[in-house]
């Protein structure tokens, strides 16, 4: 399942999930920042858990539920909050950051946010505006 839709793909099983989404599925909202699982720009949800899609061969998600930023359809309260509270500056980390924040769950405490987003690097905000966005999302 890709963003709630049953999806069949004919690709090399070892191709990175990130590349399959971007090149085969036209879903370019998921970004590459480092290619080694350090920056979290490629974060998406596999069965509701955040993963770095640059480290996942596509074969690993056969039969799983994959959710990307496009899957939120602009309706998630976090998306609106990131615009209102300055959580997105240059925007390149934003899709991954939002997906990681979705996985943190509803009404998190600041410590939970810090821990939940520790694998997502942002070079613009110093994270403060991201915390404000996540805490005020409703």
């Amino acid at each position: 399942m890709l963003n709630g839709r049953r999806t069949r793909l004919d690709v090399h099983p070892m191709k990175r999930l990130l590349d399959v989404l971007r090149e085969e599925c036209g879903l370019t909202g998921t970004k590459e920042g480092c290619g080694e699982g350090e920056c979290g720009a490629c974060t998406l949800l596999v069965d509701n858990r955040p993963v770095n899609s640059c480290l996942v061969p596509v074969a690993h998600v056969a039969g799983a539920r994959v959710m990307t930023i496009e899957g939120l359809r602009g309706r998630h309260p976090l998306q609106r909050a990131f615009v209102e509270h300055g959580g997105a500056q240059c925007g390149i980390c934003t899709p991954g950051m939002i997906m990681a924040a979705v996985a943190v769950g509803r009404k998190p405490a600041l410590d939970q946010i810090r821990t939940g987003l520790a694998g997502n690097l942002c070079r613009c905000t110093g994270y403060e505006a991201i915390y404000r966005s996540v805490m005020r999302a409703r």
């Binding site: 971007r22 998921t30 990131f82």
Partner: peptide, 21 residues
């Protein structure tokens, strides 16, 4: 005033296009 960023919606929805997109 803290008006909404011009390209904010596109950034949070992943629709804005960077060069590699």
């Amino acid at each position: 005033r803290n008006v909404l960023r011009k390209e904010g919606i596109e950034k949070v929805t992943g629709t804005v296009r960077y060069i590699d997109d």
